[in-house]
């Protein structure tokens, strides 16, 4: 009962409040209040997440499981970042007598340094890996196996060329009156017409899926996310 019905009641009441707030202007503020509650819960969950992270990695280190060295690095980075951020290490405020009044990410602070010279390059590197994965996927997966795949490939060729100077250069001889026949022109048509039509169809499907799932959640028809399906 406590494990399934009570959480579902919270879900149902909050959902109904959100719906009512959308249609009844004086209740609009409730929508903001519900959002604020979610933020509070999510902030509390940070503590749960942090504790779990600590427990997992400490277990791994103490048991000397394979890769325990990585866990040590993770915990060290976690603690260092937390400490320099919380205690505003190296922050110099406008008034040097009150350095804590400065912003925690103020230029020159320890957290700023970590962000600038560790976090930013690492995250940028991970994102840049995409270029390599796109290239390998292009070689391995984009095959003209049937008519649909061939059409997809043709569209990909046009857009790849149309989004660079190569497309402009290759069709530079085409008169301006026939600009739709240039690679950039065809790219604009593919993105603006065919892509838009497909995107809208998918969006409508997703929106209806979201509505139906939300309704199932509100009515308590599907409670598998509460871990109590057969309750």
């Amino acid at each position: 009962m406590l494990k399934s019905t009570f959480p579902w009641l919270i879900v149902a009441v909050t959902g109904c409040v959100m719906i009512a707030a959308f249609f009844v202007p004086p209740l609009a503020e409730w929508k903001n209040e519900a959002g604020a509650w979610f933020e509070i819960l999510a902030a509390m969950a940070f503590v749960v997440g942090g504790a779990n992270l600590f427990a997992q990695h400490l277990k791994k280190i103490s048991a000397r499981r394979a890769g325990w060295g990585y866990s040590a690095v993770t915990l060290f980075s976690f603690v260092v970042t937390l400490v320099v951020g919380l205690f505003k290490v190296g922050v110099i405020g406008e008034d040097p007598n009150y350095p804590w009044a400065g912003h925690y990410q103020a230029e020159g602070s320890a957290l700023w340094w970590l962000y600038q010279f560790a976090y930013q390059p690492l995250i940028g590197t991970m994102f840049a890996l995409l270029a390599f994965y796109v290239a390998s996927a292009a070689f391995r997966a984009f095959r003209a196996k049937n008519t649909e795949a061939t059409m997809l490939l043709t569209a990909a060729f046009i857009v790849l060329l149309g989004r660079t100077y190569a497309g402009t250069w290759l069709t530079s001889a085409v008169p301006d009156d026939y600009s739709a026949l240039t690679f950039p022109g065809m790219t604009a048509i593919i993105l603006g017409v065919f892509n838009t039509a497909g995107q809208r169809a998918i969006m409508i499907g997703i929106a209806l899926g979201v509505a139906a799932t939300s309704l199932k959640v509100l009515l308590g028809v599907d409670r598998s996310y509460l871990g109590s399906d057969g309750d």
Partner: peptide, 25 residues
């Protein structure tokens, strides 16, 4: 693709009340 993710739970459970929601969609 898209809505199939939302249909998945109903499809996998096979429960009538969940399958009905797909028809509603």
């Amino acid at each position: 693709i898209g809505e199939e993710l939302f249909a998945a739970s109903a499809y996998l459970s096979g429960e009538p009340q969940q399958l009905g929601s797909l028809k509603g969609q």
